[in-house]
Simulated assay, not measured.
Amino acid sequence: MMLQARHGEAYQPRADGAGLSAAADGGTAPAQGKLLQLAEMMLRKRHAEVGLASSEALMVLIEVLEEQGKHAAAADLLQGDAGKLITLEADRRRLVASLRTATGDHEAAAAEHRALLEANPDDWLAIVGFIDATLGADPGDTQLEVCERMVEQLATTAQGMPRGGKLRGPRLARCEMALRRLRVAASGGGDGAAAGATAMALADVVACYVEAHGQLASAAMDITEYTRALREGGHTAAAE
C-alpha cells in the first residue's frame, strides 16, 4: 500500500479489515481490535510530540485507522499538516478522495477530483473519479448534467493551454459521459427512439475523438469500451 501511495497508483481503502488485523497470528477479533487501538494511540502520541518522520510512517497510521473503519479520521489527517509528508499533491488528493468515498461522502470525494482537474484537465483518473463520485449508485439527469458541465469546462480549460488541443482527456471524457448516458438509457426501459439518439451521441463523440487523435498508437485502445457498447446496442453498457 505504501508503494502504491508513493508512486501514484490508485489507492483503495480497506473496508473489510483484511490487512493488519488479519495478519495477527491466531488472535481473536477483540484482541486484534485492542492491538490496533494501541498502535493508533502510540502513533498519534508520537505525531503529537515530535511529528511523523516520513510518508511511510504516515501511511502506517493511515492503515491502522482504516483497519478500524476510521476512514474519515484518516482523510482528516491527510488534509492536515501531516499530509504534507506526501509531497505530490495529486497522490495526496487521490488518497483523500478514496477515503471520503469509503465513508460515503461522495461530494467531498468529487471535490478532490475536481481540484486535480483544475490543475490538469488531462488527468484521466481524476475525470473518472469525479464522474463516479458525482453519479453515485443511482445516477439521474441532475447528476449527469453536473458531470457534463464539468467535461465542457475541461475542454474550455484545455483550449487556453499551450498545445491544449493535443490533450486526449477532455475529448475522451465526452465519450465517457456519452457512455454513461447510454447506460442509464439502456437500463431505464425508456423508448427506443431516446435510446437510439443516445447511441448516436456516443457515436458522434467517438468519431470526433478518432478525428483528433486517431493517429496515436493508443487511440484504438482508448475507444474500445465505447465502440463495444455501440456494437452491442447498449446492452453491455447497461450491465456494467
Score class of each variant (00 low, 15 high):
137 A>K: 08
230 L>R: 13
60 V>Y: 09
102 A>P: 00
223 I>Y: 12
193 A>V: 11
91 D>A: 12
93 R>F: 10
169 G>C: 05
119 A>L: 14
36 L>A: 06
217 A>I: 12
202 L>Q: 08
181 R>I: 05
46 R>P: 00
107 E>Y: 07
134 T>Y: 04
147 C>H: 00
3 L>S: 14
50 V>A: 09
197 A>S: 08
117 L>K: 05
126 A>R: 10
23 A>V: 11
131 I>Y: 10
13 P>V: 03
73 A>G: 03
225 E>Q: 14
220 A>I: 12
35 L>Y: 12
36 L>Y: 07
33 G>I: 06
83 G>D: 03
114 R>E: 15
188 G>Y: 02
123 D>M: 06
105 D>V: 04
190 G>Y: 00
75 A>Q: 01
94 R>L: 12
156 T>E: 15
129 G>V: 07
213 H>T: 09
77 L>P: 00
181 R>N: 09
191 D>G: 01
109 A>D: 09
180 R>S: 04
124 W>S: 04
141 D>W: 02
17 G>M: 08
128 V>W: 07
5 A>I: 14
114 R>G: 08
155 A>P: 00
1 M>W: 10
224 T>D: 13
167 L>H: 03
170 P>R: 05
31 A>G: 14
110 A>P: 05
218 S>D: 11
70 K>W: 04
173 A>C: 06
32 Q>P: 03
8 G>L: 05
117 L>A: 07
169 G>R: 07
152 E>D: 15
174 R>Q: 11
137 A>T: 11
157 T>P: 01
49 E>A: 09
176 E>H: 14
45 K>I: 00
228 R>M: 13
223 I>R: 12
125 L>K: 13
181 R>Q: 08
207 A>M: 06
190 G>V: 01
68 Q>I: 04
77 L>C: 01
203 A>T: 02
70 K>A: 11
66 E>F: 02
39 A>P: 00
226 Y>M: 07
165 G>I: 05
45 K>W: 03
152 E>F: 10
175 C>D: 10
116 L>T: 09
95 L>V: 03
107 E>K: 15
102 A>H: 03
24 A>F: 15
114 R>D: 14
232 E>K: 10
71 H>K: 00
197 A>W: 04
156 T>C: 03
96 V>S: 12
67 E>M: 05
65 L>P: 03
213 H>K: 13
123 D>E: 08
189 G>M: 01
126 A>T: 08
105 D>T: 04
240 E>V: 05
89 E>A: 14
208 C>S: 14
234 G>Y: 09
113 H>A: 13
11 Y>T: 02
101 T>I: 01
93 R>Y: 11
43 L>N: 03
51 G>S: 04
56 E>Y: 10
42 M>Y: 02
171 R>M: 11
215 Q>S: 15
178 A>G: 02
77 L>N: 00
53 A>F: 01
122 D>Q: 02
218 S>V: 06
99 L>A: 02
20 L>W: 14
143 Q>T: 13
157 T>F: 01
117 L>N: 09
104 G>T: 03
69 G>I: 04
42 M>L: 10
24 A>T: 15
